[in-house]
Write a protein that binds this DNA or RNA. Structure first.
Length: 666
RNA sequence: GCCGGCGUGGCGCAAUUGGUAGCGCAUCCGACUUGUAAUCGGAAGGUUAGGGGUUCGAGUCCCCUCGCCGGCUCCA
């Protein structure tokens, strides 16, 4: 037998033990070890080993170890729930990122104080130190023991067909069925669940956990299935790790763009307008305008041409594009213009349906098709901050990240097949460069490829395009995550995922090939040899939606935008009223250089003014008192509390203007 | 769309078993003029999201609508 050190994957000391040894005997002196990886497969510490086995300890603070901890905690949750609510039927209880959940079928949904009771019952179970005891059973035995658990019975029927992505694989694997008994110290069985394991040796080995929230969830993730009540929780290898996680949750809350949007007076969602429809206030407006202006400039430099198209169109356009056939339920219902009849009842003007546009591409196709096109015009890059409306389902609307009215920084590139490779290469570089300029640094790519059952277009073109995307992605040096079958029916796609300041990932830009729309719109151009050729179309958006991008940046920066984006860049704070004039002079010099600056002339005390500017997250506070006035200087205070006193006005203005121009962090 | 929770001045929160809607911040006015995160005093501000019902009486109980929050499903 070979015993490896945790996480080593290879090497390690070789120890000879007899068959029948149990894994825990090997790691008895290490309390962190909660399971074993035997020949690459996770096993309970109590499982017997064979002499040829390669055994690696699994530590509770490893990824696999935490999953086991969380899954075991989910069992404790389920036991607690069934003790308190004997009629509750069990769904599934897998570990998820940073935690776990368990689904229950109960007559009454859980209430907040139920959760408290459940949690304290769980603590009792943990204290009891129940052993997790594995027992292999036949299908018939399992059905017999689980007769009262209809959902578990369904899982038994699904055995082998369990999808890895719906969580059911934690209950049943492809091999034999197993039950886990929770055995008390006195040998009595407290509770049993269908589960493939592995588990912690005992409940006592759960160092720290917390129940977080309840919610409804469809059985096996399908809307057609009944809804179960889900309880979410988290569990960690130590109290400190749990606290750190709860602190991260708090941090995410502190950064919530909905909260910061109100605090910083950036935007709001007036009930009077409707769900998912934002208005930008002056401070959010200047932020947005700055973002857009910079984007426009970069697009201009990169050879894009600007177009403008209306928000509303007759139904026919979306019949041509196919949107009405595919996505009608995501579109707002039509505005019906009734037909008009004359006195004789003859139709004078036929009725018409008009739709709010959910996408800009059909309009851009019309621009391309508005006259004959030459190969000399390609690639033709049409750009628009195009506002679109999507009838998002009521339950999904969420701050700025999921809205019903949004503005895409949308472009459609029409090029020849020969140009595709070059265009995609420069495009990806352009996209990443621009995102970096806005302060996102950490990316990975996702390549969505053909769903063989659902696509249009020529296989050869698909292959070529997909290969090109893959090459371009590889050349970027970024991590590439394949998403097989994830492409839309009309073409493959690369999406850029960005990690923010606290490590969350957001889907940002998409670069999507389209073999469908040029066909549907009958677009063509005259090639050098005089033949008519069909262009390939690339859809691309960097921000995705500007609203959402503002939301993401707000959370990324926790509202403390870098100077170039900050709605108010400088606040002048006079120590006494007599110093205000001096700051007005400085302010007007800054304003002359395009800096957004205010002088706080309120009758608050200076300390209060600092606090106000701090809460508004203004990057530069310029403070002036007698000393500064005498020296023709100002004193800097930055958001981190650092000061730089007695800086000459000359230097101060230059420092700020330079930081803004170069988009520096401060 | 589904399940649950919630909706009280601009914001954050109070309001015994159904019995006169309060507080802090912000706002406005006045006083004060102070070197790095909250000076003091005063005033104004609410048909308790909207509509309907029960009741002598509803912020509180019931129904509907709208909106928000947490999930599920969805996201061209």
């Amino acid at each position: 037998m070979t015993v490896l050190s945790a996480g080593s994957g290879s090497g390690g000391a070789t120890r000879t033990v007899t068959t029948g040894t149990r894994a825990w005997e090997l790691f008895a002196d290490d309390p962190e070890v909660v399971a074993a990886r035997v020949n690459g497969e996770l096993r309970d510490l109590s499982r017997e080993l064979a002499s040829a086995d390669e055994v690696e300890p699994v530590s509770i603070d490893s990824t696999a170890g935490r999953d086991i901890l969380r899954h075991s905690t989910a069992h404790v949750l389920a036991q607690a729930v069934q003790q308190l609510f004997p009629e509750a039927r069990l769904g599934i209880g897998p570990p998820v990122v940073d935690g776990f959940y368990y689904d229950f079928d109960v007559a009454e949904p859980f209430r907040p104080d139920d959760v408290e009771h459940i949690e304290s019952r769980m603590r009792k179970i943990v204290k009891e130190g129940q052993r997790f005891d594995r027992r292999a059973v036949t299908d018939a035995q399992a059905r017999d023991e689980l007769a009262a658990e209809p959902y578990k019975l369904m899982l038994v029927d699904l055995k082998g067909a369990a999808k890895p992505d719906d969580g059911s694989s934690v209950e049943v694997g492809a091999g034999e069925l197993t039950l886990y008994d929770n055995v008390r110290r006195d040998g009595s069985v407290a509770w049993t669940d269908l589960c493939r394991g592995p588990h912690l040796p005992t409940t006592k080995r759960i160092p720290a956990f917390r129940l977080l929230r309840t919610a409804a969830a469809y059985w096996r993730g399908n809307e057609q299935n009944p809804q179960l009540q889900r309880i979410y929780g988290t569990a960690w290898e130590s109290k400190e790790a749990l606290d750190a996680h709860l602190h991260r949750l708090q941090e995410a809350q502190r950064r919530d763009h909905r909260r910061l949007g109100a605090e910083l007076d950036l935007f709001s969602f007036p009930d009077e307008i409707g769900s998912g429809l934002a208005v930008f206030h002056p401070k959010g407006g200047v932020l947005r305008k700055t973002m857009e202006d910079y984007s426009r400039r970069r697009h201009e430099e990169a050879g894009y041409e600007f177009v403008y198209t209306p928000h509303l169109t007759k139904a026919g356009l979306f019949e041509t594009s196919g949107h009405l056939q595919w996505f009608a339920d995501g579109m707002f219902p039509p505005i019906r213009i009734d037909e008009e009849r004359d006195a004789d009842g003859q139709v004078r003007k036929p009725g018409q349906d008009y739709y709010l546009k959910p996408m800009n591409c059909p309009m851009h196709c019309l621009v391309f098709g508005s006259r004959g096109r030459s190969y000399r015009e390609l690639p033709l890059r049409l750009f628009e901050f195009g506002t679109v409306y999507r009838n998002e389902k009521s339950g999904v609307v969420h701050g700025l990240t999921r809205v019903r009215g949004l503005t895409m920084d949308d472009a459609h590139i029409f090029c020849s097949r020969e140009q595709l490779r070059g265009e995609l290469t420069t495009l990806l570089v352009f996209v990443l460069d621009l995102l970096r300029d806005y302060g996102l640094e950490d990316f990975y790519l996702e390549l969505s490829t053909k769903d063989p059952d659902k696509y249009v277009g020529d296989d050869a073109v698909w292959d070529e395009a997909t290969d090109t995307l893959a090459e371009v992605a590889a050349a970027s040096g970024l991590e590439l995550v394949p998403d097989p079958g994830g492409a839309a029916f009309y073409g493959p796609k690369i999406s850029v995922q960005a990690r923010d300041a606290i490590g969350r990932t957001w889907q940002m830009s998409t670069i999507q090939l389209d073999f469908n729309l040029p066909e549907r719109f009958g677009l063509d151009y005259t090639a050098a040899d005089g033949s008519r050729q069909r262009p390939v179309m690339i859809h691309r958006a960097l921000f995705g939606s500007i609203e959402r991008f503002i939301g993401v940046l707000t959370e990324h920066y926790a509202g403390a935008f870098p100077p170039w984006l900050s709605p108010v860049q400088v606040v002048g704070i006079p120590i006494a009223e007599r110093h205000a004039e001096h700051l007005d002079d400085v302010a007007s010099r800054l304003r002359g250089q395009g800096v957004r600056v205010e002088v706080d002339r309120s009758d608050d005390r200076m300390q209060k003014k600092i606090r106000s500017a701090q809460l508004q997250k203004v990057p530069y506070m310029l403070i002036a008192g007698d000393r500064d006035v005498d020296d023709a200087a100002v004193s800097f205070r930055y958001l981190d509390g650092e000061q730089d006193n007695g800086v000459s006005i000359e230097v101060a203005v230059d420092r700020i203007v330079t930081a803004v121009r170069e988009r520096r962090a401060r």
